[in-house]
Amino acid sequence: MSFVWGLLYGTGAVILIAGGAVVGVWWERKVSARIQLRLGPQQLGPAGSLQMLADVPKLLFKEDVVPASADRLLFRYAPLAVFAPIAMSLAVIPFWAGWAPLDSAAGVLFFLAVPSISVLGILFSAWGSHNTLATLGGVRAAAQMVSYEVPRALAVLSVVVLGGSLQPSELMDAWRWWWIPVTLLGFGVYFIASIAEMNRGPFDLPEAESELVAGYFADYSGIRWAVFMMAEYGAMIASALFGAALFFGGFMWLPGVAGLAVHIGIAALIITAVMWVKWTFPRLRQDQLMTFCWTVLTPLALVQLVLAVVVALWL
């Protein structure tokens, strides 16, 4: 029985991410066009919303090229190792009062730990390409993702300290509105570190097209490239939904379906902010990236943790 549920859930997660990626790409085109004062998709359907209907078949039917010098096994299956952990991490996000698809006793840690498997997928795909630019991009991505995991985990930990549980449903039961001002700094750290985790601008050094062509997915085309893109949008959706629940209470504001709508609304606002950041700020340099993580973001996360501990003890 649990296998059937797992299968159903996995299918649901993939459909959710695929649909989210399609809507996300359309929304990103519109947001970036608005920010940079240019035209987004206009021609197909209302506000260009059918443009993706043309783009998806193009990606699906494009030839799936494997470079002659590449390690075939790694090159073919590494994109799945990037995507699958991110789809898995959706399982522990609480959507409903007292319920999450996988309400594990260590759920919050699960959300932080499982996507880190995708670092390995990125490194393998980069190394499997046997291509200098791809390998450089992969090493950059791995260094960045391993580093930014630290402030991200510390920021989430401050909410866990206030709630006194690692179980998503218990944590949300304990959630109170006054946590928002207390953990606002933590949300800032979580937001920035999450952008770095999904390798998006201004932290997109691993795929910096002006120096590395496209980084670790330089050699990919067609459906495998689309899997990388789906992993990126999936990470964005998962981070936004999780952040909306932990830092802004998500569904706790209203009962039932209305609460779910509020949750998705907050997450959509966070996703829009992620896109806004990408199209506004220029890309960082590699040394700036690491210095920023270890001398600014991590100390800020520690300050937030101390603040949360003081508040939790004072109550």
Partner: peptide, 18 residues
């Protein structure tokens, strides 16, 4: 021990193996 399992994935697969 789900805690230990999550810690194992976090520390070893996300850290040491990289």
């Amino acid at each position: 021990s789900p805690l230990l399992a999550a810690a194992q994935v976090f520390v070893y697969i996300g850290g040491v193996l990289v």
